[in-house]
């Protein structure tokens, strides 16, 4: 070898520290704010740091979190899944409907249908190359329609009887945390490994970072994209089924607008809407942050809970501004 290429050639020394700090902010900003908020909440409201209250935040957040896990994968590939709210509700109704064949069928039916729903969306997006926004918007309407037809325009509410295996799982708890919380944690652990430590995860990042390049580098782009939408459908269906188990019935009006909360949580968690960057741990922080904000506003009591939306929205705007700024700084250096 005659010479050596040393890089980064243009990066001045000393910029590294600031650089690293910005990177950390991008990835763990949500966690930092979450810790801060919990600390402030604990000092300000005696009713906030109780086991009951925190357990409540955990269980209500767990369903949103499960859906957001799938959404994280979708968004990292540079896509979007608007159908999750409807699929979530569909999963709940299907679970309650499936109870007539027992608890296992009640769990399998929503998984099968919602997974298939994701598969069709994924094929349309990855193979037919339609825009994810449009395909999943159609999915949002389609899943809602399917749900209404099963429930006779919402007139029939199917129940999940108390004492059934599914209901016991949805409602039971151990150590102050509901069973679904543990399942969600397990799913996130598996999701983190899948995203960070497997070739599939690398492909997800590569597609979001540059789809054409990924294609040239031999990444199975179509297959990977189909799979993330299948995952998203499966997880939304599962979350819906568990939520129905907790409520003892398949409620048809659930999940309207949920996709926006889910996207907000994922983005607040540091995943870039443009794809290519993000993490599962950030998403969990994003979900909890939304949950804690809602809970704290309820604690304030005389403040209308409608403000929760305002605060969450404002927070999302701030996060996106900061993200944009950070990635611009990183690119400009």
């Amino acid at each position: 070898m005659t010479s050596t290429v040393t890089a980064p050639a243009e990066a001045p020394p000393g910029a590294g520290g600031r650089e690293r700090f910005f990177g950390l902010m991008q990835r763990h900003g949500a966690t930092a704010v979450l810790v801060l908020l919990v600390a402030v909440g604990s000092v300000s409201f005696s009713s906030f740091p109780t086991g009951d209250n925190l357990g409540n935040i955990a269980i209500t957040s767990s369903f949103l979190a499960t859906v957001a896990l799938g959404m994280t994968f979708v968004i990292i590939t540079g896509g979007i899944d608007l159908s999750v709210g409807s699929v979530f509700a569909l999963g709940g109704v299907l679970a309650a409907y499936g109870m007539r064949w027992g608890s296992f069928a009640a769990l399998l039916l929503p998984l099968a249908v919602c997974g298939a729903f994701g598969l069709v969306q994924g094929l349309l997006i990855a193979r037919v190359r339609l825009a994810p926004f449009i395909v999943t918007l159609a999915g949002l309407l389609g899943a809602r329609g399917l749900l209404l037809s099963i429930s006779n325009e919402g007139a029939t509410t199917y129940l999940i009887p108390h004492g059934s295996l599914l209901a016991r799982f949805g409602q039971g708890s151990v150590l102050g945390l509901g069973y679904p919380v543990y399942l969600t944690l397990a799913l996130f652990a598996a999701g983190a490994v899948l995203l960070q430590r497997t070739r599939f995860g690398q492909c997800v990042y590569a597609i979001g970072g540059g789809e054409d390049a990924a294609q040239l580098m031999g990444v199975p782009v179509t297959r990977t994209k189909v799979l993330v939408y299948v995952m998203s459908g499966l997880l939304a269906g599962l979350a819906g089924a568990l939520n129905a188990a907790r409520l003892s019935s398949g409620v048809t009006i659930l999940g309207t607008g949920m996709e926006l909360d889910v996207i907000a949580a994922v983005v607040i968690g540091g995943t870039l809407l443009t794809g290519g960057a993000g993490s599962v741990s950030g998403t969990i922080a994003g979900v909890l942050l939304l949950g804690v904000i809602q809970n704290l506003i309820n604690q304030i009591g005389d403040l209308s809970s409608s403000y929760q939306q305002v605060v969450s929205g404002g927070f999302l705007a701030v996060v996106v501004v900061v993200q944009t700024y950070l990635s611009r700084v990183q690119r400009l250096r």
């Binding site: 690398q202 990042y205 590569a206 979001g208 970072g209 540059g210 054409d212 390049a213 990924a214 040239l216 580098m217 290519g276 960057a277």
Partner: peptide, 12 residues
Amino acid sequence: IGLVPSMSVARN
């Protein structure tokens, strides 16, 4: 260049 800029050198 047909690589992914946001990923690390090793991953690319």
